[in-house]
Each structure stands twice: as C-alpha cells, then as structure tokens.
Computed example of a mutant assay.
Amino acid sequence: MSEPVADAAASTVITAPAGARPSRGLARALAGMPAWAGGVLGVVLIVALWAVVAVSPFGRNGAIPTPLDVAVLFGQAFGSSSYWEGVGATSLAALQGYVVGNVVGLLLAFVVLLVPRAEGISTQLAVVTSCLPLTAIGPLAAIMSPAGSRFTSVFLAALSVIFTTVVGSILGLKSASRTQLDVISAYGGTRFTQIRKVRLIAAMPSLLAALKIAAPAAFLGAVLGEYFLVGVDQGIGVLLLSAQFDNDSTRVWVLALTSGAVAGAAYLLIDRVGRLLTPWSAGDRTGKAAF
C-alpha cells in the first residue's frame, strides 16, 4: 500500500494559481526597469488621468483644460517675451531670497556651535519663520516697501528657506565624529579649527540636502510675494493674477506648471551639485560624482 501512495505523491505537481505567474512577471518587469523609466511611466499615468478628468463632468465648466490645450498654449508662450521676462524676474527674486535666507540660516547654525546655549533661541527663531503665515506677512512687507520694489517677493523667498537651512545645518554640524573632535582638542585646536577641519566636512551632505529642499521653497515664496507687489508688471505671480482676472484657466495651468518646472529644475541643479561635491554621500565609492 505504501508504494502506490509514494508513486502518487511523487507524480503530483503543485501548480501556482493562474493569476500568480502574470503578477510575478509584472513585478519582475517593474523591478528591472531603470529609474528614469519609472519616472516617465508616472508622468504618462498622471497625464492620462488629467485627460480623463478634463473631459469628465468635473472639468466641463472649463476649470480643468485638457493636456492638449495646455501644450498648445505652452508652445505659444515660449515665443512670448512677456512670458520669459516674468520667469526671469521671479527667478531673480527667488535667487536673491535664497541667498539671503541661507546666509541667515547658516549664521544661526554657527552661533549654536560657538555658543551651545543659544541653540534654543536659534531653533525657536527658525520655527517662527516656518510658522508665520506668508499670506499675512506679505501685505505687511508690501506696505513697508516702496512702490515698484520687489522687496516683498525677496523677503518671502528668504523666509521660506530659513527653517530648512537651520535644521539641516545644525544636524550636519553636530554629526561630526566625537573622536576626531577630541583629537583636535588634544592638539590644542580651537572650536574654529574643529569647524574647519571636521564639522564642515561632516555637515556637507545634510547641508546640501537642506539647500536642495530650500531651492523650490524660495521660488514658490517669490511667486507668492508677487501677489502683493505694487507698481510691478513682471513676474509669474503678476501673470497669474492677470490670468485669474481674465478667468483664463488654461493660462493659469500653464503658469502653474511653469512654476513647478522651474522649482523642480532648481531642486535638480542643487542635487547634481551636491553629488559633485560629496560623492561619498551618494554611495559612489570610485570618488567620482554620480553626474
């Protein structure tokens, strides 16, 4: 009786369910895709969903234009001087605010290193800049600035990056090896020597990560600041107000996507610079940047 049972057991083949193999094959195919292919696939899915919503009852009132309408207007905007002047004016204000905000954030971080008891005050100031509603600060800054000045746009851009820079800088500067710091102290080194020889190098990955996140924040802060400008007729925020006044939803979408594209380009630029300056933080053991 045992031999037939053994033969039957040996001849039995356990097969997976019918839907298991295709799902596994799809999972393997997705896992084997390069990183850029996943990004392209995500963009295609978003555009497809956008097109479906645009022709659905939610988009019939014209609030959501089709991707084709937006693409056509994009092509027209590329040949418009006012479009590029607006992008350039906003980008310049964002760059100025980015520099000012990061300088303030770095100074607050270095004060913490030189005077450890000042960490509470520095972090509280950074938190306050993050918690302040920009829509409430903007009108106040506009009142204090003369007509035709871009102070409000620059100010809101700077205000948008201080918190990120302070937190990233403090975490990076405090991540230095305790042993290396003790060695410098044993040889008579000062706090400035520790900062220059150890802390700055250890802080580079965290600092560059903070600067990378701050770049889009500065640009979007500059766009928001242009909503409160007086006597200025250039900038993405100004063009958005004009499109909103004309009830031109397609132009609003074009300008919104332009803002996202410029902010994303700034993020990517800082990311590439960070990979070039700190290749070890990207896992590049060859010493070359993963450019």
Rank of each mutant, 00 (worst) to 15 (best):
A261W: 13
K288R: 15
F228G: 04
T179L: 07
G237A: 11
R21H: 08
A266S: 13
A157L: 00
L156F: 09
S82A: 15
G237R: 00
T193D: 10
R178I: 08
L229P: 00
R60L: 10
G86F: 02
M1K: 06
G231P: 04
S80P: 15
Q244V: 06
R178A: 12
A265V: 12
V112M: 08
V167T: 08
A157G: 07
G75A: 08
Q234M: 07
A141G: 02
A89E: 02
F228C: 03
G88T: 07
A48T: 06
T123K: 06
G39N: 11
S175V: 08
G168N: 04
L156V: 14
A37V: 06
V252M: 09
L224V: 09
V100T: 11
Q96V: 15
C131P: 15
M144S: 12
V115A: 05
A256V: 14
A265D: 14
G221H: 03
A142L: 07
F74C: 07
P67R: 02
G32N: 04
A217W: 08
A210L: 02
T152V: 12
V99L: 07
L269S: 14
G148M: 11
N102E: 03
G138R: 02
I14P: 06
M33H: 13
I46L: 08
R275E: 10
G105R: 04
I195Y: 03
P279Q: 01
R150P: 01
S160H: 13
P133I: 03
L73V: 13
V166Q: 01
E226Q: 01
V53G: 03
E226P: 00
F155A: 05
T250A: 09
I143F: 13
T179H: 12
A94V: 01
L95Q: 03
V43K: 15
V111E: 00
I213V: 15
E119C: 14
A209K: 05
T12P: 07
Y83H: 09
V99I: 02
T164K: 10
L224P: 01
S175E: 04
P279F: 07
S2E: 11
L49W: 15
T258E: 05
I143T: 06
L276F: 13
R150C: 06
L68Q: 08
W50M: 05
V112S: 02
Y83S: 11
A209Q: 12
R196F: 08
T250F: 05
F163R: 04
R117C: 03
A16F: 08
V13F: 09
F155D: 02
V223Y: 07
